[in-house]
Every structure is written in structure tokens, then in C-alpha cells.
Design a protein around this nucleic acid. Structure first.
Lengths: 114, 114
DNA sequence: GCATGCTACTAGGTTATACAAGGTAGCTGG
DNA sequence: CCAGCTACCTTGTATAACCTAGTAGCATGC
């Protein structure tokens, strides 16, 4: 489509990717490679390993997720990531923030100007 | 709150600000200074003129808004911005994208892994 | 042995943006 | 006439994150 729109998507991803990872982990453990494949199915979320692993690393350092190595019957060991209590809290904060933002801009629609 | 959360907000803003400006213009013309003051009332959206004016300029160059100078009874002339047809289309695309993203990550919640 | 596919990780380059700070100028009231 | 508010705009800087490309290791099948 338009160049502007493409550019916008790039910018949005930067803020949204982390949120999506946290959401994907909300109800189950997942390992990195799985996340890459899973998120590829969501339009606009396709990412590569070079994007995901640094991101997971940041989340771990920040204390939002824990990592656990587990051997696999088929193939190399997998590193499973799970949300911490703090991760859940942060996820809730993020959702709140976006909700408020949505409400805020929606109210701008209808209100008279200053 | 947490440092991670603060940082996240910075990133989210980058993608969301443009969307919010377009939304604010959806139902009415607005001039720059007014936007600064109006958006300051939305939590998380507070911005300065140094942020807004370059942004409006980008939107104008991209053909999403038009600008019209109009004298004011009280104070200096104001520059009113309005959405173009293309601006409306882009706004719709953005909303679509975010909706799909929301659906997509929400489905990740419940689906079994791969 | 070797190719293929799964799994994890790193380094460097590129890109884009928000923000601070500063500048111009008009209008109003004391 | 000057202080303060309205209104618009530009430049420079710092930040930060994604992506490409590459490394490395294990497992399986041939």
C-alpha cells in the first residue's frame, strides 16, 4: 500500500512486539523457536529469530519471564519461557494503558474543541 | 513504575502518536496549538510542539492531511489541519491492522501450541 | 559421513523518532 | 512599551530497536 502505512507498521511493531510475546505466554510456556513459528501466523507479527531472541533476553533481564532448559525427544534441547508474577503485572499495566489510550482518543472524536 | 514499563511507553508512543492525531482530526478540523493542548488531556499522550509540528508536516507531505491558514479574532493566525480522503483511508487501514493484531494475539491465548 | 532441519544466540548497520532548546512574530493589557 | 500569552517552526541530539547475516550445536535419515 502506501509508503507511509508501511513505515507506520514498522514503528508500531516496536512497541507492540513485546506486548504480543507476553500475551502469547500468558496461558502457557513456550520455547523460542515455537514463538517464531507461532507468531508468523499472525498478520503483521512475522519476526525472525534475530528479532525474537534479543527481545526474550530483555524480558528475562527485566524479570518479566523466566527461562528453563528442557531436553526434547526430537531435536536439540528447548528453552521454555514463562511469565513471572511481575510479568503478569506488567502485562496488565500495558493492557490498561492501551485501553485508556483508546478511550481517550475515542472521546476526542466527539468532544467539542477547546 | 518499572523501568521496563516506562521504556515500553516510549516505544509505543512512536507508533501510536500518528494514529491519535489522525483520530483527533477525524470529525473536525483542528489547529496545531489546539492539538497540543487537547492531547495533553489524554494520559500518555502529552506532547510538545517540537514533537507535533514535525509530525503534522510529515502527514501533510504524505498527503494525509491538508493545512489551511485562517486569521483569528484573538491572537495570531491559526493553521487548521483536516483529513484528506487518503488520510481517512489510511486511518481505516491502521484501525484494521490493530484490530487484526488484537484478534491474532487473543487467539494465541487459547489455542494449543503448534 | 553428510545433508537437512530444529534450536539458540550474537554483532553490526540502518532507520526512524521524540524531545529539548531556541527562534520568530502577532496580539493584548497594564 | 513591555511582559506574557498565543501560535508556528527548525535544528540537533540521543535513544532504541528491528533486521540481516552469520555462528554453533544437536538429531535424524540416508
Amino acid at each position: 500500500m502506501s509508503e507511509f502505512f508501511d513505515n507506520w507498521i514498522v514503528q508500531v511493531r516496536k512497541g507492540v512486539l513485546e506486548l504480543c510475546i507476553l500475551r502469547a505466554l500468558e496461558n502457557q510456556e513456550r520455547y523460542g523457536y515455537e514463538l517464531v513459528k507461532t507468531l508468523a501466523s499472525v498478520p503483521g507479527l512475522a519476526l525472525t529469530e534475530g528479532t525474537l531472541y534479543p527481545l526474550l533476553s530483555r524480558l528475562r533481564v527485566a524479570g518479566l519471564v523466566t527461562a528453563r532448559l528442557e531436553e526434547s525427544d526430537e531435536g536439540p534441547a528447548r528453552k521454555y519461557y514463562a511469565l513471572t508474577k511481575e510479568g503478569r503485572r506488567t502485562l496488565a499495566d500495558m493492557n490498561d494503558f492501551l485501553d485508556k489510550l483508546n478511550q481517550g482518543t475515542r472521546s476526542l472524536h466527539k468532544l467539542p474543541s477547546l
